[in-house]
Design a protein around this nucleic acid. Structure first.
Lengths: 293, 293
DNA sequence: GAAATTTACGCTATTCGTAAATATC
DNA sequence: GATATTTACGAATAGCGTAAATTTC
């Protein structure tokens, strides 16, 4: 189970071709074939069917392991590399769309900043592998609870902000006038699933504690990142949206009603590779220090 | 960052000796020295001080990564090995002390069972690496929330049971007569820290959502696994204990008062390596099926 | 029979052990 | 000076590419 072999195997499985994988990895087809053969011999299992090239059931399993494994390996290397490298002169921030809290924006250094929007679940990996120096992620959690992040690598998470959650509904909706809604009142409602722009429904289900069982049916899926659009969709009756309260207001035809039960908040966290915390100077340290205070 | 090198490095760091590590791994001292040198060259960093042998700061960092990495690697191998192997004839269960719920005991097959008690945090690893065929873990969580387990490998977790939590206090305690207590009433209290026998205070703090900030001072630490002893200590005024309600009752001089706020439960889960779920027959499948129904 | 994967084979680079050299307490 | 780590060096091995063989559509 040499990582090289795993890496090759993953590439072959992804591209469904030995030859294409060889091109991508800079090997000959022969070498790729030998890699896969070695892996199969090592595990005593066929991993791929040939013609067409597709993973066997055992191969599917291995893919799950291999992905995480290679990610961790890259993360370890990146983290250790940071030890040796000089403090960076620029700051590379990966952020999920809703994590760009004013407090975070205010803490950004004046120059040398690159800000990249990434899907929520790719932010931790970006920080771990060194693609980004710092990450800003959001999610929902119980008040003052940390977010549940996948542990790709030892990352230091710091609270940046917590805001109430709000349900966005059409101004004509019977609940629109309320000062607060309970989620239980809305289990039968149709929701907008907007993993990028809004709070992902899956996460809500996880935190709220419903097993796959009840509710949260999806009416429409929106794949963009614009919260105004999302609120407009909600105003137009395509389904309910869940947003941080500050982001939910001010859309014509829409009412934002705070979610009062269960007691959940929209939380933003700063993510730093643990190795990066040693840096005493530089924009990464500066950004981190400002957000911490 | 070859896993072999990492494994050697970890052994050297743990044993604080090149020679001892060589003996343990079945290499010569020379080979071990070369391994460490190769790693240091690869990363461009010194990882160990010699005489005495101890990890440098960078080495410490690497240890964190390496541990998780090697664990995942072992888990992957074990998981794939299960694919090739014939269904096991015996059932090897790893369980944290409080996870031995009657429902779990009742589901055990009549013969061929080995039951091993393990600290809570080692159960997932035991299942992942194949040391155990199945695991029973407990912890505290919001009602019908899954436990937060470290993701060493893709493990399938199933709910086995949820029980109310109870605070165990001396019968003479002012709150002893209550039908329920709120945790907020007890932040100033002294607690028994019994990571093995009771619910770990750290976990409570995490779920309840206090950052390192307030409360949960420890009066006495008990490292055994016996809940009766723990309750007796609480009865004797050495501090408060937190136990699942069923385990908390019936101790002379002690009162068990259900915890009513925050709404948390003691939860037990069955852990199965995802690879093992394919087994249609055998004691592992039988055990799993009985607990699922 | 064309396209793709596997196998054969030779070259090179790596890895490990023996043994000598060197460093540290 | 004894103990422990490093270095030098040779033998075995593993890994890759070229090219021929084989498989499959």
């Amino acid at each position: 189970m040499d990582p090289h072999l795993l890496r090759t195997y993953v590439a072959v499985a992804r591209l469904a071709s030995f030859s294409d994988a060889a091109r991508e990895l800079g090997y000959t087809q022969s070498a790729v074939s030998q890699h896969v053969a070695a892996l199969e011999a090592d595990l005593g299992l066929p991993l791929l069917t040939r013609r067409p090239v597709a993973p066997t059931p055992a191969g599917e399993r291995l893919l799950e392991h291999a992905g995480a494994l290679l990610l961790r390996l890259d993360a370890a290397r990146a983290d250790l590399d940071r030890f040796a490298a000089a403090p960076r002169a620029t700051l590379n921030v990966a952020a999920s769309p809703l994590a760009l809290h004013p407090r975070a924006l205010a803490a950004l250094p004046a120059t040398g900043v690159t800000l990249r929007a990434l899907p929520r679940d790719r932010v931790p990996a970006a920080v771990a592998t060194g693609e980004a120096d710092a990450g800003l992620v959001d999610g929902i959690a119980a008040p003052s609870d940390p977010l549940r992040l996948p542990d790709i690598a030892p990352l230091a998470a710091t609270r940046v902000a917590e805001e109430p959650l709000a349900v966005v509904l059409p101004a004509t909706h019977p609940l629109a006038g309320r000062t607060g809604v309970r989620l239980d009142d809305l289990v039968d409602a149709r929701w907008l699933d907007a993993p990028a722009a809004g709070v992902p429904l899956g996460e809500l289900r996880a935190v709220h504690g419903g097993p796959a069982g009840r509710g949260f049916r999806t009416a429409l899926r929106y794949e963009g990142t614009d919260t105004r659009t999302l609120a407009a969709l909600a105003a137009d009756g395509h389904g309910l949206a869940l947003l941080p309260l500050p982001a939910a207001g001010g859309v014509p035809g829409a009412a934002a009603v705070p979610l009062v039960a269960p007691r959940l908040v929209h939380r933003t966290e700063l993510l730093l590779a643990a190795g990066a915390r040693r840096e005493a100077a530089g924009p990464v340290a500066e950004f981190s220090r400002r957000l911490r205070s």
